[in-house]
Design a protein around this nucleic acid. Sequence first.
DNA 1: CTCCGATCCTGATGGC
DNA 2: TGCCATCAGGATCGGA
Length: 270
Amino acid sequence: MPELPEVETTRRGIAPLVVGHLVVDVAVREARLRWPVAADLAARVRGQRVNAVSRRSKYLLIEFAQGTLIVHLGMSGSLRVVAADAPPGKSDHLDVVLDNGDCLRLCDPRRFGAVLWAADPAHHPLLRDIGPEPLEAAFSADYLFYVSRKRKRAIKDFLMDSHVVAGVGNIYANEALFAAGIDPRRAAGRLSRARYAQLQTAIVATLNAAIAAGGTTLRDFRGADGRPGYFSHALQVYGRAGEPCRRCGTVIRHVTIGSRSAFFCRSCQS
DNA sequence: CTCCGATCCTGATGGC
DNA sequence: TGCCATCAGGATCGGA
């Protein structure tokens, strides 16, 4: 589920409710996530104050003086701030309990998410090799052009590689390629600098529009306030196989690229 | 190095 | 209505 816009929506939702508060406990009801939740997590975090909530790629970083809680929402995760005594649902696996009676509650039915402690997150193996943030200046047409040379992978697969660019998943790779007019099956190394300029612009515009809409909800995703994301209504190609292109009317096609679904318009994308 | 497929897990969905 | 197969937004890992 959550790609960069959904994680950013979550970050903006929870930050004002948790920053400045002390953690009084971490309650783990199900430790079997993508990686087991460390048994000593509560001991490490208890008594510390939340300094900030930031984001790197699809990871949420809850920052304390002594280290950082790294949270990944996997495919089906969401985070909400609720009263600590509200009864947890079946998939509410973990609570970070705050000093004001609220808690930050992780719900993750598929358990592909992760909650990890890192004393030095910048050098954590999960974070250190991630590519540039797409909404920051280092993500440029020149950068994309340079790192794509000689690469034979399909451009869509390439965009979804977090070592190339952070936070772009299946939905936004499909949408950005439509916006840039690029066929998702084309080899990354065969696209010109000019086309990468279009693509870079399209990625930034697509992600910003999605963040402004509160993300995309297909099934599970909810913002920190429990509301779904409204970018679903703005999707041009994702999940629209067989339906007419909103721009030209041609039937949207579905193909599999790298074992993931790709959607595109044959006449708008080449 | 690069690329591809398998893999972790649950739940929603659609066909019969 | 029920059962079963199929498919999901991610990212790592191993092997070719």
